[in-house]
Design a protein around this nucleic acid. Sequence first.
DNA 1: CTCCGAAATGTATGCGCATACACTCGCCGG
DNA 2: CCGGCGAGTGTATGCGCATACATTTCGGAG
Lengths: 376, 376
Amino acid sequence: MAKAPTVYDVAQRAGVSIATVSRVLRRPDDVRERTRTVVHEAIRELGYVPSGAARGLAARSTGVLGLCFPDVDGIDEAADLPDPVRVGEAVEVVRDVGGPVTARWSNLYLGEVMRGAELEAWRTGHAVMIGVARGLRRAQAVNELAGRVDGLAVLSKSVPDDLLAHIARRVPVVVMAGPPQDDDYDHISVDNRAGTRALVDHLIADHGIRDLAFVGGPFDSPDAHERFQGFRDALTTAGLEAPDEPAARSDFTRAGARDLARTMLEAHVTGRGTGATGRALPRALVCSNDQTALGFLDVLTEAGVDVPGEVVLTGFDGIDATQASIPRLTTVSQPMVELGRAAVELLRTRLGDPSAPPATVNLPVRVLLRESCGCS
Amino acid sequence: MAKAPTVYDVAQRAGVSIATVSRVLRRPDDVRERTRTVVHEAIRELGYVPSGAARGLAARSTGVLGLCFPDVDGIDEAADLPDPVRVGEAVEVVRDVGGPVTARWSNLYLGEVMRGAELEAWRTGHAVMIGVARGLRRAQAVNELAGRVDGLAVLSKSVPDDLLAHIARRVPVVVMAGPPQDDDYDHISVDNRAGTRALVDHLIADHGIRDLAFVGGPFDSPDAHERFQGFRDALTTAGLEAPDEPAARSDFTRAGARDLARTMLEAHVTGRGTGATGRALPRALVCSNDQTALGFLDVLTEAGVDVPGEVVLTGFDGIDATQASIPRLTTVSQPMVELGRAAVELLRTRLGDPSAPPATVNLPVRVLLRESCGCS
DNA sequence: CTCCGAAATGTATGCGCATACACTCGCCGG
DNA sequence: CCGGCGAGTGTATGCGCATACATTTCGGAG
């Protein structure tokens, strides 16, 4: 690492000019075979690796696409972070008594999106740079990321609006997983509404259920809102009365959903079994995400309510845990890898035609019918 | 995106020189407050975002660290990849009849490593660039990655030796999760040997087991080999006879392990229950990874063999599925996030002192005692 | 009011590469 | 034998920034 060799070094060693060296690398066909060989040899001998910075500067394009995520670790400042473990510590033996399975929904989610983006970028000869908008210096970090890439895919809500607008003046921006919105960015999102609708259609048409309730999500979740709209669509189409509001709102966590479920169950308990007084539980609970559904499942199972016998339960997202629950959860699977791929594809399209009007891509989802709705 | 503004544009607009603009960004304290304000205003108005390429070139350092993974998707060529799904496709409704839970071990693993690397890089003001050594153009891709970063963390076996050597002449390289080796790179790995040893110590000391067998991994897996060494260490220390070879070798997949388990079970079946003829199953099966242990668990459960009553079963890695199995699997948890963090930390150290001798960091692991070994 | 040193700012240069353009050389047709 | 043409190569320039160094400004002591 004394000093990385440059084109000049290679050129000198090969007895050619720097232009020829550059051509050997970028347009080999323009160079005589013999020359090419000589240059390659020099490159090998010197351990020459072209500087990406210089290339990017000269070519006015870096060949790198950026991916910007929100901070899902909840780490705000460097101080929050313990120092990395160091060498020589002993093996720790701990008795793991159980407790709830660690939920890595967001990690997995982001990981898959990243995988998709990387895949598509690789396919088209791009590199991928990832950034997490985290901490006080987030603005600077995002700004620097933007300065290093040809295009930036941003997960919805991870970057403040004004910063995004600033950045978008330099590089094309596509917003992932946000609500369709009337701004100047390209959007790529998942068809929450159609997915929920298809799921509820199934409950109504195939299981003959006519008494359904929707467990919503946080007020500020556009996803949850869209899913609720899909729920309403299905009811309306079936000639059922669609509520204006979700029957309840979860905070999207399993623990929160448990609390919510207990509360609901208590409210209903007077009516259970007697068949006369009080309201019975709805025949189907359509939850706005998997965590919520799993929380409900925990409580219902605990209370001896038969799922799907007495109550049908469904989720949304398609996280792994839905395959491990008993009964397995009917849900709607999000195309996470596709989300990443589509984002990169949209960026490339945009780079090819910067003046095209903003596009919105709505990715199709898959409804997975399993035991919790009475299938299988 | 007409044309991204540069320092020159900002300087002109603010009525200062480009040096001052640069200083406002890099060394704000060297600039009078009033000037600073004016410049910042110009930056805002113009939508100026500094070019990372130019910065990198001028500063002779990009501020980017690279992360290079092997191809775990098994995608060799762009042609192998279906086109991204497109707009307007219908929601698909499928009956999910079950089958083995999708194993995303490597995805999760790499995702966690990435997360750790990103975290540590963020902490120290670096950006992270990821690359997957995949396909025919892998050499070129890795080379380009190397040209864009200040340092490169490479997952063991993801880059051919000669290419790695070539690259290492330009940027510092740290090898992750490889066997300690006598090369010129920094290494960061996980203490497979001590982890397995601690686990087996527990089986012997706390459960009084003296009849243990080791289910190994592929011949070319250094991890599997180290774990076997840990197994032998424990036996030897306890005064038991340590075998020279694993009792069997799994291919590290759950499905493969099932086949292996069936074969083993058949060989033993004549001896079961009779107590006289044939060999009995060993009291404990120490598997070289979780997938293997889970595959064995599937088959043993199916065959009515009580775990841990008749056979004690353990894994290695600490994947999520080990918490969901029945009984939950005793295993050794790898510090995946730490692996990424340590890699970045090592790179930084190396960048600070390029001439220091190659270092090797061995990360401690955690043994998680659960029901499959008879604990809890 | 002058002079000096420190603070603030400007000027000039180079980072390593791609590429437009100029140039050389060998070859063919005239 | 000459002109022209194309393949192959070299020369020169600029990409956008950081920074060493030169220059100006400012504040305060004398």
